[in-house]
Design a protein around this nucleic acid. Structure first.
Lengths: 204, 204
DNA sequence: AAAATCATGTAATCGGTTACATGATTAT
DNA sequence: ATAATCATGTAACCGATTACATGATTTT
């Protein structure tokens, strides 16, 4: 598995509870979990391997998970983690704490602040890149959803499936990516309108 | 000004460049900038005062801004910052660095991971709260945009205005909030479908 | 032969958060 | 009287990132 490079990783979230929730569906090694949260496998948020390993150790120290070492001959030994009762209790507690509003962090928005004084060329290039990235992400998420659904309707899937989390995560991503693409187009439109304010003299 | 409490603050972004960009439009004290990025005044991202003050000092040490102390008798003295040439150069450099993909951090999405094993009651409450929050945010952003436009069309505004950053920031927020509300509704739908899988036997 | 897979971790650093401290002035 | 405004900061902490280190095995 290639870990850094390509498109790179995105940023932060509640790593501990993400790991806890991931272990609900079955025991896993740190390595398994790293893969499950990888950018290619997952979506728009990815804890880094370094932190996942440290967090797993901390969780073990806190008694939320227990790790058993599995000795392997051909490959390095691994530690397989499972939820403890305390872990499950913590998950329950967490479920009942109201979630804070989602956080959105977008450097492009910051750059927009300088738009009325800056040269828009660099911004246009940036917007085009961003738009492309979002379209690509959208395509991937959409095809994941299609693959998950198969022949079923969304309602059937909702009733039967056992990986609703994955599914809903992708739905979330799709919505955000659509909004992002539309925003890019709107901003490009604004910059164009500013560049050629021809239509001002038109109607009135 | 009341700083903490109420809905509270959201999280992180590139504080340094946000401050730099804010100073493009005119000199300002730390306090002015704190207000400009406040949740009520601004949008969905807000650096904390503590960090803005520290960051301004660091920027001054790095020569990107220069602060002049203004002595006041009735109120505490203040330091008014202005961009230096180095600061403007840094802003230019920053404009040319490609922006990384936007980051989205949403604890609700994490909670969804446990949906097929957990009791959905707590989640439903959480979703309802979230939905309400987003609708409210949406309303505020929408009325800000309306106020900015006034009698003008979007194209006219784009050609004339000198606060495009504020405007585009709100457009971004509106798109994200709309997507968020729709997602909440979709998830609620999924949970309902799961709770009463009545329609499975229907057509086929 | 080169690259990717399996598998885990440490150390240094950093950006950001929380909590706290101060105190005159003005508006409700 | 109470609360909010003006105005700035420090100290402790913490979650997360970057960079690095290891090395046999399997696939291309």
């Amino acid at each position: 598995m290639l870990v850094s490079g390509t498109t790179g990783w995105d940023k932060s979230m509640s790593t501990r509870h993400a790991l806890l929730n991931a272990l609900v569906h079955g025991d896993a090694s740190g390595y398994d979990l790293v893969k499950r949260f990888q950018p290619s496998a997952a979506h728009w948020w990815h804890p880094r391997p370094a932190q996942m390993y440290t967090e797993l150790s901390r969780m073990e120290a806190d008694g939320l998970v227990s790790g058993e070492t599995v000795i392997q001959t051909k490959y390095p030994n691994k530690r397989v983690f499972s939820l403890t009762d305390a872990g499950r209790a913590e998950l329950q507690r967490y479920a009942e704490v109201p979630s804070p509003p989602a956080e959105f962090k977008d450097e492009l928005v910051i750059k927009m602040m300088g738009l009325d004084v800056a040269d828009p060329a660099a911004l246009l290039a940036d917007l085009a890149r961003r738009r492309k990235w979002c379209v690509e992400r959208l395509r991937k998420d959409q095809s994941s959803v299609d693959a998950m659904l198969g022949e079923r309707t969304a309602d059937q899937y909702a009733a039967e499936a056992d990986d609703l989390g994955e599914y809903l995560w992708r739905l979330r991503s799709i919505g955000l990516m659509q909004a992002s693409v539309e925003w890019c187009d709107a901003v490009i439109g604004v910059i164009e309108a500013r560049r050629s304010p021809a239509n001002e003299q038109r109607t009135a």
